[in-house]
Computed example of a mutant assay.
Amino acid sequence: MRGVKALTLLAMLILIIAGGTVFFHHVEGWSWLDSYFFTVVTLSTVGYGELVPATPMGKIGTTVFILLGLGIFAVAIQQFGAFAVKKREEHTEWLIGRLGHRHHPDPEPDAANDPESPDR
């Protein structure tokens, strides 16, 4: 099930980037590369400021794109991060099992001034 979720998020991310690229290419008249660059920079909230929409439709589209796309982008990043952490945990558990070690913390040694110490 995790695979389907990851593929769905990846597909949504690709679609929002492709949609933004096409939109800015046609509305602002930018090159495909500039449109793609602006889309990714806007979604990632980096915002270099190199490209700025000049048309009213471009400005309105950018605000809608930010509101829709940022949520999708944030969820995708969060999910991929959670997936990476889970994989690392699974690998660590496998490695510990493979090495035959079980983690048992050492009991704390008795304090020298412990009144219950058998040395007294």
Rank of each mutant, 00 (worst) to 15 (best):
M1Q: 14
R2F: 06
V4A: 12
L7D: 08
T8A: 13
T8M: 09
L10D: 11
M12A: 15
M12S: 14
M12F: 15
L15G: 05
I16K: 00
I16Q: 02
I17P: 01
G20S: 05
T21N: 05
T21L: 07
F23D: 01
F23E: 01
F24V: 07
H26G: 10
V27H: 03
E28I: 04
W30P: 02
S35G: 04
T39I: 03
V41L: 12
L43T: 01
L43H: 03
L43Y: 00
L43D: 05
Y48M: 10
G49H: 08
V52W: 14
P53H: 01
M57A: 14
K59P: 09
T63P: 01
I66T: 01
L67Q: 08
G69Y: 06
L70I: 06
F73Q: 04
V75K: 04
A76Y: 06
A76H: 09
I77R: 04
Q78V: 11
F80E: 11
A82I: 15
A82C: 15
V85C: 07
K87S: 09
L95H: 02
L99T: 04
G100W: 00
H101M: 12
H103A: 05
P105Q: 08
P105D: 09
P107K: 08
P109A: 06
D110S: 09
A112L: 09
A112D: 13
N113Q: 09
D114N: 11
D114R: 05
P115G: 00
P115L: 00
E116W: 12
P118G: 04
D119W: 02
